[in-house]
Design a protein around this nucleic acid. Sequence first.
DNA 1: AATATATGTCAACATGACTGACGTAAAATC
DNA 2: GATTTTACGTCAGTCATGTTGACATATATT
Lengths: 164, 164
Amino acid sequence: MTDVKSGNNPLFLREEELRQSIELLFFAYRDFTAGPDAILKQYNFGRAHHRVIHFVGRNQGMTVSELLDILRITKQSLSRVLSTLIDRGYIEQRPGQRDRRQRLLFLTEKGQQLEQQVSQVQRELVAKAFREAGGDAVAGYRKVLAGLIDEKDRDKALGRIERR
Amino acid sequence: MTDVKSGNNPLFLREEELRQSIELLFFAYRDFTAGPDAILKQYNFGRAHHRVIHFVGRNQGMTVSELLDILRITKQSLSRVLSTLIDRGYIEQRPGQRDRRQRLLFLTEKGQQLEQQVSQVQRELVAKAFREAGGDAVAGYRKVLAGLIDEKDRDKALGRIERR
DNA sequence: AATATATGTCAACATGACTGACGTAAAATC
DNA sequence: GATTTTACGTCAGTCATGTTGACATATATT
Protein backbone atom coordinates (compact mmCIF):
# COMPACT_ATOMS: atom_id res chain seq x y z
CA MET A 1 0.00 0.00 0.00
CA THR A 2 2.60 2.47 1.01
CA ASP A 3 4.72 0.93 -1.69
CA VAL A 4 2.59 2.45 -4.37
CA LYS A 5 3.68 5.89 -3.36
CA SER A 6 7.04 5.24 -1.79
CA GLY A 7 8.42 3.04 -4.52
CA ASN A 8 11.88 2.16 -3.43
CA ASN A 9 12.57 5.42 -1.68
CA PRO A 10 13.67 4.50 1.83
CA LEU A 11 13.07 8.04 3.05
CA PHE A 12 9.41 8.04 2.27
CA LEU A 13 8.18 6.17 5.28
CA ARG A 14 10.25 8.35 7.52
CA GLU A 15 8.87 11.54 6.05
CA GLU A 16 5.37 10.18 6.15
CA GLU A 17 5.79 9.20 9.76
CA LEU A 18 6.98 12.67 10.62
CA ARG A 19 4.10 14.30 8.82
CA GLN A 20 1.67 12.14 10.69
CA SER A 21 3.23 13.01 14.00
CA ILE A 22 3.01 16.68 13.17
CA GLU A 23 -0.66 16.44 12.42
CA LEU A 24 -1.23 14.43 15.53
CA LEU A 25 0.21 17.25 17.58
CA PHE A 26 -2.03 19.72 15.81
CA PHE A 27 -5.19 17.76 16.55
CA ALA A 28 -4.19 16.97 20.10
CA TYR A 29 -3.43 20.58 20.89
CA ARG A 30 -6.65 21.72 19.29
CA ASP A 31 -8.71 19.51 21.57
CA PHE A 32 -6.44 20.03 24.57
CA THR A 33 -7.31 23.72 24.57
CA ALA A 34 -11.00 23.30 23.76
CA GLY A 35 -12.13 22.54 27.33
CA PRO A 36 -10.54 25.53 29.05
CA ASP A 37 -11.59 27.78 26.18
CA ALA A 38 -15.21 26.86 26.70
CA ILE A 39 -15.14 27.54 30.44
CA LEU A 40 -13.29 30.80 30.18
CA LYS A 41 -15.65 32.03 27.53
CA GLN A 42 -18.34 32.14 30.21
CA TYR A 43 -16.24 34.69 32.07
CA ASN A 44 -15.48 36.60 28.89
CA PHE A 45 -11.91 35.47 29.15
CA GLY A 46 -9.85 33.99 26.36
CA ARG A 47 -6.86 31.76 25.99
CA ALA A 48 -4.54 34.60 26.85
CA HIS A 49 -6.17 35.01 30.26
CA HIS A 50 -5.93 31.29 30.78
CA ARG A 51 -2.20 31.28 30.22
CA VAL A 52 -1.70 34.15 32.63
CA ILE A 53 -3.81 32.54 35.32
CA HIS A 54 -2.09 29.24 34.81
CA PHE A 55 1.45 30.53 35.09
CA VAL A 56 0.78 32.93 37.92
CA GLY A 57 -0.96 30.11 39.75
CA ARG A 58 2.05 27.90 39.35
CA ASN A 59 4.47 30.69 40.24
CA GLN A 60 2.83 32.82 42.87
CA GLY A 61 4.84 35.97 43.30
CA MET A 62 6.47 35.87 39.88
CA THR A 63 7.52 39.09 38.23
CA VAL A 64 5.96 40.61 35.15
CA SER A 65 9.13 40.19 33.14
CA GLU A 66 9.33 36.52 33.96
CA LEU A 67 5.79 36.10 32.75
CA LEU A 68 6.59 37.98 29.56
CA ASP A 69 9.55 35.73 28.99
CA ILE A 70 7.40 32.63 29.34
CA LEU A 71 4.56 33.80 27.17
CA ARG A 72 6.75 35.34 24.49
CA ILE A 73 4.44 38.24 23.91
CA THR A 74 5.03 41.97 24.21
CA LYS A 75 4.25 43.78 27.40
CA GLN A 76 1.57 45.77 25.65
CA SER A 77 -0.20 42.56 24.77
CA LEU A 78 0.14 41.28 28.28
CA SER A 79 -0.90 44.60 29.70
CA ARG A 80 -4.48 44.46 28.54
CA VAL A 81 -5.01 40.91 29.66
CA LEU A 82 -3.33 41.49 32.99
CA SER A 83 -5.18 44.73 33.69
CA THR A 84 -8.48 43.00 33.11
CA LEU A 85 -7.58 40.19 35.45
CA ILE A 86 -6.50 42.69 38.12
CA ASP A 87 -9.52 44.94 37.65
CA ARG A 88 -11.86 42.02 37.94
CA GLY A 89 -10.11 40.72 41.02
CA TYR A 90 -8.49 37.51 39.82
CA ILE A 91 -4.92 38.67 40.23
CA GLU A 92 -3.28 41.09 42.58
CA GLN A 93 0.07 42.81 42.52
CA ARG A 94 2.36 43.48 45.43
CA PRO A 95 5.59 45.43 45.30
CA GLY A 96 8.70 43.29 45.63
CA GLN A 97 10.50 43.31 48.96
CA ARG A 98 14.04 43.31 47.70
CA ASP A 99 13.31 45.28 44.55
CA ARG A 100 10.43 47.65 44.94
CA ARG A 101 10.17 48.33 41.21
CA GLN A 102 8.75 44.89 40.76
CA ARG A 103 5.03 44.19 40.93
CA LEU A 104 4.86 40.58 41.99
CA LEU A 105 1.86 38.69 40.72
CA PHE A 106 -0.47 36.61 42.86
CA LEU A 107 -3.75 34.85 42.28
CA THR A 108 -6.46 36.06 44.61
CA GLU A 109 -8.80 33.58 46.25
CA LYS A 110 -11.17 34.12 43.33
CA GLY A 111 -8.32 33.64 40.90
CA GLN A 112 -7.32 30.40 42.53
CA GLN A 113 -10.83 29.08 42.27
CA LEU A 114 -10.98 29.83 38.57
CA GLU A 115 -7.55 28.38 38.01
CA GLN A 116 -8.57 25.26 39.85
CA GLN A 117 -11.77 24.89 37.88
CA VAL A 118 -10.15 25.31 34.51
CA SER A 119 -7.11 23.28 35.29
CA GLN A 120 -9.18 20.42 36.55
CA VAL A 121 -10.86 19.91 33.19
CA GLN A 122 -7.51 19.84 31.50
CA ARG A 123 -5.97 17.54 34.09
CA GLU A 124 -8.83 15.11 33.71
CA LEU A 125 -8.36 15.02 29.97
CA VAL A 126 -4.65 14.41 30.31
CA ALA A 127 -5.14 11.90 33.09
CA LYS A 128 -7.51 9.93 30.92
CA ALA A 129 -5.08 9.91 28.02
CA PHE A 130 -2.30 8.85 30.40
CA ARG A 131 -4.29 6.03 31.91
CA GLU A 132 -5.19 4.69 28.51
CA ALA A 133 -1.68 4.97 27.17
CA GLY A 134 0.17 3.57 30.17
CA GLY A 135 3.26 4.63 32.08
CA ASP A 136 5.85 3.86 29.46
CA ALA A 137 3.96 5.84 26.87
CA VAL A 138 3.78 8.79 29.25
CA ALA A 139 7.52 8.73 29.72
CA GLY A 140 7.97 8.73 25.96
CA TYR A 141 5.49 11.53 25.52
CA ARG A 142 7.42 13.67 27.95
CA LYS A 143 10.74 12.85 26.42
CA VAL A 144 9.65 13.80 22.93
CA LEU A 145 7.90 16.99 23.99
CA ALA A 146 10.95 18.08 25.92
CA GLY A 147 12.95 17.56 22.76
CA LEU A 148 10.61 19.83 20.84
CA ILE A 149 11.35 22.74 23.10
CA ASP A 150 13.82 25.14 21.58
CA GLU A 151 17.27 23.99 22.59
CA LYS A 152 18.39 27.48 23.51
CA ASP A 153 16.09 27.69 26.46
CA ARG A 154 15.11 24.10 26.98
CA ASP A 155 16.85 23.94 30.33
CA LYS A 156 15.22 27.13 31.44
CA ALA A 157 11.79 25.87 30.43
CA LEU A 158 12.26 22.45 31.96
CA GLY A 159 13.58 24.04 35.10
CA ARG A 160 10.47 26.15 35.33
CA ILE A 161 8.27 23.13 34.91
CA GLU A 162 10.01 21.04 37.51
CA ARG A 163 11.18 23.45 40.14
CA ARG A 164 8.48 22.72 42.62
CA MET B 1 11.46 17.67 48.74
CA THR B 2 8.04 17.08 47.31
CA ASP B 3 7.13 15.83 50.75
CA VAL B 4 7.20 19.31 52.11
CA LYS B 5 4.26 20.29 49.96
CA SER B 6 2.55 16.98 49.48
CA GLY B 7 2.56 15.88 53.07
CA ASN B 8 0.88 12.53 53.10
CA ASN B 9 -1.52 13.31 50.31
CA PRO B 10 -1.12 10.52 47.77
CA LEU B 11 -2.88 12.54 45.08
CA PHE B 12 -0.39 15.36 45.13
CA LEU B 13 2.30 13.79 43.05
CA ARG B 14 -0.25 12.72 40.51
CA GLU B 15 -1.67 16.21 40.19
CA GLU B 16 1.77 17.70 40.06
CA GLU B 17 2.77 15.29 37.35
CA LEU B 18 -0.27 16.19 35.32
CA ARG B 19 0.37 19.89 35.70
CA GLN B 20 3.91 19.43 34.52
CA SER B 21 2.79 17.49 31.50
CA ILE B 22 0.32 20.19 30.63
CA GLU B 23 2.98 22.86 30.73
CA LEU B 24 5.29 20.70 28.72
CA LEU B 25 2.73 20.55 25.97
CA PHE B 26 2.36 24.30 26.07
CA PHE B 27 6.07 24.94 25.68
CA ALA B 28 6.52 22.27 23.05
CA TYR B 29 3.68 23.60 20.95
CA ARG B 30 4.93 27.13 21.29
CA ASP B 31 8.30 26.23 19.85
CA PHE B 32 6.88 23.74 17.40
CA THR B 33 5.02 26.55 15.65
CA ALA B 34 7.79 29.12 15.87
CA GLY B 35 9.77 27.91 12.84
CA PRO B 36 6.92 27.89 10.33
CA ASP B 37 5.64 31.19 11.72
CA ALA B 38 8.95 32.85 10.99
CA ILE B 39 9.12 31.60 7.40
CA LEU B 40 5.55 32.45 6.58
CA LYS B 41 5.94 35.91 7.97
CA GLN B 42 8.28 36.65 5.08
CA TYR B 43 5.39 35.98 2.71
CA ASN B 44 2.98 37.98 4.84
CA PHE B 45 1.23 34.78 5.75
CA GLY B 46 0.25 33.69 9.22
CA ARG B 47 -0.47 30.49 11.04
CA ALA B 48 -3.90 30.29 9.49
CA HIS B 49 -2.39 30.18 6.00
CA HIS B 50 0.02 27.55 7.17
CA ARG B 51 -2.75 25.27 8.32
CA VAL B 52 -4.59 25.60 5.05
CA ILE B 53 -1.49 24.91 2.99
CA HIS B 54 -0.62 21.99 5.16
CA PHE B 55 -3.97 20.26 4.99
CA VAL B 56 -4.58 20.94 1.33
CA GLY B 57 -1.11 19.65 0.62
CA ARG B 58 -1.84 16.44 2.44
CA ASN B 59 -5.28 16.10 0.90
CA GLN B 60 -5.07 17.38 -2.64
CA GLY B 61 -8.55 17.75 -4.02
CA MET B 62 -10.26 18.02 -0.66
CA THR B 63 -13.50 19.94 -0.40
CA VAL B 64 -13.99 23.23 1.39
CA SER B 65 -16.33 21.68 3.93
CA GLU B 66 -13.85 18.98 4.80
CA LEU B 67 -11.25 21.65 5.43
CA LEU B 68 -13.67 23.60 7.58
CA ASP B 69 -14.39 20.52 9.60
CA ILE B 70 -10.69 19.94 10.23
CA LEU B 71 -9.84 23.50 11.14
CA ARG B 72 -12.94 24.08 13.24
CA ILE B 73 -13.34 27.64 12.12
CA THR B 74 -16.21 29.35 10.36
CA LYS B 75 -16.28 29.58 6.61
CA GLN B 76 -16.03 33.35 6.81
CA SER B 77 -12.75 33.00 8.65
CA LEU B 78 -11.49 30.50 6.15
CA SER B 79 -12.72 32.60 3.29
CA ARG B 80 -10.29 35.44 3.81
CA VAL B 81 -7.31 33.18 4.20
CA LEU B 82 -8.30 30.97 1.30
CA SER B 83 -9.03 33.89 -1.03
CA THR B 84 -5.60 35.32 -0.37
CA LEU B 85 -3.94 32.01 -1.09
CA ILE B 86 -5.91 31.65 -4.32
CA ASP B 87 -5.35 35.24 -5.41
CA ARG B 88 -1.65 34.93 -4.83
CA GLY B 89 -1.46 31.65 -6.69
CA TYR B 90 -0.69 29.14 -3.96
CA ILE B 91 -3.95 27.26 -4.18
CA GLU B 92 -6.33 26.61 -7.03
CA GLN B 93 -9.89 25.40 -7.11
CA ARG B 94 -11.46 23.03 -9.59
CA PRO B 95 -15.09 22.07 -9.71
CA GLY B 96 -15.82 18.54 -8.57
CA GLN B 97 -16.52 15.94 -11.23
CA ARG B 98 -19.29 14.09 -9.50
CA ASP B 99 -20.68 17.11 -7.69
CA ARG B 100 -20.12 20.33 -9.52
CA ARG B 101 -21.09 22.47 -6.56
CA GLN B 102 -17.83 21.55 -4.92
CA ARG B 103 -14.66 23.56 -5.43
CA LEU B 104 -11.92 21.07 -4.83
CA LEU B 105 -8.73 22.49 -3.43
CA PHE B 106 -5.27 21.89 -4.84
CA LEU B 107 -1.84 23.30 -4.14
CA THR B 108 -0.29 24.86 -7.22
CA GLU B 109 3.35 24.24 -8.03
CA LYS B 110 4.16 27.41 -6.11
CA GLY B 111 2.00 26.25 -3.23
CA GLN B 112 3.75 22.92 -3.11
CA GLN B 113 7.11 24.60 -2.95
CA LEU B 114 6.06 26.73 -0.02
CA GLU B 115 4.48 23.79 1.73
CA GLN B 116 7.63 21.80 1.25
CA GLN B 117 9.82 24.58 2.57
CA VAL B 118 7.77 25.18 5.67
CA SER B 119 7.10 21.56 6.38
CA GLN B 120 10.76 20.70 6.11
CA VAL B 121 11.68 22.96 9.01
CA GLN B 122 9.04 21.38 11.12
CA ARG B 123 9.94 17.86 10.11
CA GLU B 124 13.56 18.49 10.95
CA LEU B 125 12.61 19.70 14.40
CA VAL B 126 10.42 16.69 15.03
CA ALA B 127 12.97 14.31 13.54
CA LYS B 128 15.61 15.65 15.89
CA ALA B 129 13.36 15.23 18.90
CA PHE B 130 12.51 11.71 17.75
CA ARG B 131 16.12 10.72 17.25
CA GLU B 132 17.04 11.99 20.68
CA ALA B 133 14.11 10.34 22.38
CA GLY B 134 14.26 6.96 20.66
CA GLY B 135 11.68 4.71 19.07
CA ASP B 136 9.87 3.62 22.19
CA ALA B 137 9.42 7.19 23.29
CA VAL B 138 7.98 8.07 19.90
CA ALA B 139 5.44 5.30 20.18
CA GLY B 140 4.44 6.62 23.58
CA TYR B 141 4.25 10.16 22.32
CA ARG B 142 1.85 9.10 19.60
CA LYS B 143 -0.23 7.01 21.91
CA VAL B 144 -0.73 9.82 24.40
CA LEU B 145 -1.45 12.47 21.78
CA ALA B 146 -4.02 10.23 20.14
CA GLY B 147 -5.67 9.93 23.53
CA LEU B 148 -5.86 13.69 23.84
CA ILE B 149 -7.95 13.98 20.72
CA ASP B 150 -11.61 14.40 21.47
CA GLU B 151 -13.13 10.94 21.70
CA LYS B 152 -16.12 11.88 19.61
CA ASP B 153 -14.09 12.31 16.47
CA ARG B 154 -10.87 10.59 17.36
CA ASP B 155 -11.39 7.89 14.79
CA LYS B 156 -12.19 10.42 12.16
CA ALA B 157 -9.07 12.44 12.96
CA LEU B 158 -6.81 9.41 13.17
CA GLY B 159 -8.27 8.14 9.93
CA ARG B 160 -7.41 11.40 8.27
CA ILE B 161 -3.89 11.26 9.53
CA GLU B 162 -3.25 7.72 8.43
CA ARG B 163 -5.25 7.29 5.28
CA ARG B 164 -2.36 7.55 2.87
C1' DA C 1 -41.32 21.75 -8.43
C1' DA C 2 -39.67 22.10 -3.90
C1' DT C 3 -36.04 21.44 -0.87
C1' DA C 4 -31.43 20.64 0.66
C1' DT C 5 -26.50 21.17 0.09
C1' DA C 6 -21.88 23.34 -1.11
C1' DT C 7 -19.99 27.35 -1.45
C1' DG C 8 -19.35 32.35 -1.48
C1' DT C 9 -20.04 37.02 0.27
C1' DC C 10 -21.38 41.26 2.93
C1' DA C 11 -21.39 43.82 7.22
C1' DA C 12 -20.14 44.37 11.85
C1' DC C 13 -17.54 43.08 15.66
C1' DA C 14 -14.09 40.92 19.41
C1' DT C 15 -9.74 39.30 20.80
C1' DG C 16 -5.13 39.17 21.05
C1' DA C 17 -1.14 39.96 18.85
C1' DC C 18 2.13 43.83 17.05
C1' DT C 19 5.26 48.52 16.89
C1' DG C 20 7.00 52.67 18.62
C1' DA C 21 7.23 56.20 21.75
C1' DC C 22 7.14 58.05 26.18
C1' DG C 23 6.84 58.26 31.50
C1' DT C 24 8.03 57.03 36.29
C1' DA C 25 10.10 55.01 40.10
C1' DA C 26 13.70 52.47 41.93
C1' DA C 27 18.18 50.23 41.58
C1' DA C 28 22.83 50.08 40.11
C1' DT C 29 26.92 52.21 38.69
C1' DC C 30 30.31 55.68 37.96
C1' DG D 1 25.59 62.50 44.28
C1' DA D 2 24.66 62.38 39.44
C1' DT D 3 23.89 59.30 35.69
C1' DT D 4 22.39 55.28 33.67
C1' DT D 5 19.88 51.14 33.61
C1' DT D 6 16.02 48.35 34.82
C1' DA D 7 11.08 47.11 35.78
C1' DC D 8 6.97 48.34 34.72
C1' DG D 9 3.06 51.00 32.84
C1' DT D 10 0.61 53.40 29.17
C1' DC D 11 -0.98 55.79 24.85
C1' DA D 12 -2.05 55.45 20.04
C1' DG D 13 -2.51 52.98 16.04
C1' DT D 14 -2.43 48.68 13.31
C1' DC D 15 -3.01 43.84 11.86
C1' DA D 16 -4.42 38.90 11.85
C1' DT D 17 -7.71 35.88 12.89
C1' DG D 18 -11.55 34.55 14.89
C1' DT D 19 -16.90 35.35 15.57
C1' DT D 20 -22.33 35.90 14.15
C1' DG D 21 -26.07 36.54 11.07
C1' DA D 22 -28.08 37.27 6.78
C1' DC D 23 -28.36 36.49 2.11
C1' DA D 24 -27.07 34.71 -2.89
C1' DT D 25 -26.17 31.17 -6.37
C1' DA D 26 -25.56 26.96 -8.47
C1' DT D 27 -26.29 22.28 -8.31
C1' DA D 28 -28.18 17.92 -6.34
C1' DT D 29 -31.76 15.43 -4.30
C1' DT D 30 -36.39 14.27 -3.27
